[in-house]
Computed example of a mutant assay.
Amino acid sequence: MGVAAYDLEVTSPVPPAKLFKAFVLDNDDLIQKVIPQAISNVEILEGDGGPGTVRKVTFGEGSQFKYVKHRIEEIDKENLIYRYSVIEGDALMNVLEKISNEIKFEASADGGSICKNNSTYFTIGDFELKQEQIKAGKEKSLEIFKAVEAYLLENPDTYN
C-alpha cells in the first residue's frame, strides 16, 4: 500500500464558526440547495450523525462519479475540526483503499477564516497516484467551497 498526501488552504471572508456550521453540520442540505446538480441524495446508512456514522452520498447527473460512502471519524465543534474517510465508491477508482480527510477552520486576522484541508490517499498495491489526479479533485472541492461561500455572503443571517 502506498500513501499520498495533499494539502489545500483557502481563505474566506466568512467567519470560521459559520463555515463550520454550513460545511460540516448542515453540509447535506446546504450543498443540495446551493448546487443541486452536485449531489442528488445523502442518506445515513449507520449511526446517528456523529463519529462512526456511515453516509452514502449520491452525486448528481453529469458527475464523473456515481456515489461515495463516508465514515465520520470526528466532529470537534469546539476546535472546528472535521475528520472523515471516503471508504467506498467509484471515486476510489478501484486503486484506492480509502481517502482520509481533515478539515479545520481557523480565524484569520481580518475576521474571516482560513480553511485547511489535509487529504491522505491510501493506494492499493503498488499503484502510484499522480498529483494531477489529486489536484483535479481538489479543484472540484474548491468550486463547491466558493459556491457555498457566495451563498453565505449573500445570506449573512444564516448559520449565526
Rank of each mutant, 00 (worst) to 15 (best):
L30T: 02
L30S: 01
I31P: 00
Q32I: 05
Q32G: 02
K33E: 14
K33I: 09
V34F: 01
Q37V: 00
Q37G: 13
A38Q: 04
I39G: 12
I39Q: 10
N41V: 02
E43F: 04
I44D: 02
L45V: 14
L45W: 08
E46V: 12
E46F: 07
D48G: 02
D48F: 07
G50E: 07
G52E: 10
G52Y: 08
G52K: 07
V54N: 09
R55N: 09
R55H: 08
K56C: 15
V57Y: 07
V57N: 12
T58Q: 14
T58E: 09
F59P: 05
F59K: 06
G60Y: 01
Q64V: 12
F65M: 12
F65P: 06
Y67W: 13
V68Y: 01
K69L: 14
I72L: 13
E74D: 12
N79K: 15
Y84M: 14
V86E: 12
V86F: 06
I87F: 12
I87M: 12
A91K: 13
M93G: 03
M93Q: 13
L96M: 08
K98S: 15
N101M: 10
I103K: 01
K104P: 00
K104G: 01
K104S: 03
F105M: 09
E106P: 00
A107P: 05
G111I: 02
G112S: 03
